[in-house]
Deep mutational scan, measured.
Amino acid sequence: KSEISQVFEIALKRNLPVNFEVARESGPPHMKNFVTKVSVGEFVGEGEGKSKKISKKNAAIAVLEEL
């Protein structure tokens, strides 16, 4: 299972809201860097990556460590 689906499963079991959002985009158009924030109830994680998908996955990994 992907880290993102694990976050949603845990949140569902604990009845917590999940929110993913792109917090920052930086860099030139051909080499963008994304920072995504995820919140699961009061737990927050942040991930960085060269694409929105990678930064979302890294944010999920960060919040899984707290859950």
Rank of each mutant, 00 (worst) to 15 (best):
L64T: 05
N58L: 09
I54V: 12
E46R: 15
T36K: 02
K32R: 12
F43V: 10
F20L: 07
E46M: 14
A11M: 00
E65Y: 09
E46A: 10
K13P: 04
R14L: 10
F43M: 08
L12C: 12
F20S: 05
F43Y: 15
M31D: 15
F34T: 05
F20M: 07
K13W: 03
K52S: 06
I61N: 09
E48T: 15
K1W: 04
V63H: 01
S2K: 13
S51G: 01
S55V: 01
E25S: 14
E9L: 06
V35I: 15
L64V: 04
K50Y: 09
K32A: 13
F20D: 03
R14W: 08
A59K: 02
A62W: 00
V44G: 06
G47I: 00
E9P: 02
L16C: 04
I61M: 11
K53M: 07
S2Q: 07
V44C: 14
N19M: 13
V22D: 11
S39F: 11
G45V: 06
E9A: 12
A11S: 06
I4F: 04
H30N: 15
G47L: 00
K53G: 08
N58I: 03
V18Y: 01
K1L: 07
R14M: 14
M31N: 15
I61V: 11
Q6K: 12
E46C: 13
G49L: 01
E65W: 06
A62E: 06
A62P: 04
E42Q: 13
G49H: 04
I4H: 05
K37M: 08
P29D: 13
E65T: 12
K1T: 10
N19Y: 10
V38D: 03
F20C: 06
M31W: 09
V40F: 03
G49P: 01
F8G: 07
E42M: 11
N58G: 02
E9K: 11
K50M: 11
F34R: 01
V7E: 05
P29V: 09
F34V: 04
L67E: 01
G27S: 08
K53V: 09
P17M: 10
E66F: 15
F34L: 02
G49D: 04
R14A: 09
F43R: 05
L64A: 05
K13Q: 12
V40I: 04
K52G: 03
S26F: 06
F8D: 06
F43A: 11
A60Q: 01
G49Q: 01
N33S: 13
